[in-house]
């Protein structure tokens, strides 16, 4: 029991590190892609059918790869970027690649919720496309984007648990090594309980903040 607590704490720290860093990096890729999807869509401010279709196709392709396969398939890429394929930092690479297209779709649906009239009013007043994206679309979609971020965070947390399979560290790793391989049911249950609490905190915090900033 005396070794368990430090181990769980380390696992929690690793899990949070992987999850938060991966989500942040995945947004750097996914947010612009989501904006691109909405802007180039049929009713977007700069319709571009071919580009829209192409980006959508790439995202769908990436999303249809099961995460476990992606995890293993990108090992060479991971080694190239991080220098190793083991540990939490190495896990960030497949997590980002797996989550970015999912985030692009989340962002797309949030931006599509923005009242078309508000966008049109912006256009009618002579705002440039960039001004409409930065000053109308994104601010008006803020609560929905935040809810999406909470969903993304908890989904990536779930993915990060799978990283244990390739020695990725974190709570999922502990659950698999002790609970599954060594039949230590208690350890597994405690680990899962911690994950449940973390998911709960992320989700509730996201929903609360979204509600406070929603002025509609």
């Amino acid at each position: 029991m005396s070794d368990l607590l430090p181990m769980l704490l380390r696992g929690l720290r690793e899990t949070l590190y992987m999850t938060v860093l991966s989500t942040a990096l995945a947004y750097i890729i996914g947010l612009p892609l989501g904006i691109l999807l909405v802007v180039t869509g049929r009713d977007g401010i700069r319709p571009a059918r071919v580009l829209h279709g192409f980006v959508g196709l790439i995202i769908n392709l990436a999303r249809s790869i099961p995460f476990l396969i992606l995890l293993i398939a990108v090992l060479p890429v991971t080694r190239f970027i991080v220098g190793t394929t083991i540990g939490s930092t190495a896990t960030v690479v497949p997590l980002v690649l797996g989550a970015a297209p999912f985030i692009a779709r989340l962002v797309e649906s949030s931006l599509n919720e923005v009242d078309r009239g508000a966008v049109e009013a912006g256009r009618a007043m002579g705002a440039s496309s960039m001004q409409i994206i930065l000053k109308v679309l994104l601010p008006e979609a803020k609560p929905s984007l935040l809810l999406g971020a909470a969903i993304a965070l908890t989904t990536i947390l779930g993915y990060s648990a799978m990283a244990g399979i390739v020695g990725g560290g974190g709570l999922g790793d502990i659950a698999i090594r002790y609970g599954y391989y060594r039949y230590q049911k208690d350890t597994m249950l405690i680990t899962v309980a911690i994950l449940v609490v973390v998911v709960q905190v992320f989700q509730e915090a996201g929903a609360k903040i979204a509600k406070v900033i929603d002025k509609r």
Partner: peptide, 11 residues
């Protein structure tokens, strides 16, 4: 331009 549905920026 003023529209039927006001189209103010809600936030």
């Amino acid at each position: 331009m003023v529209f039927q549905s006001y189209d103010l920026f809600p936030h």
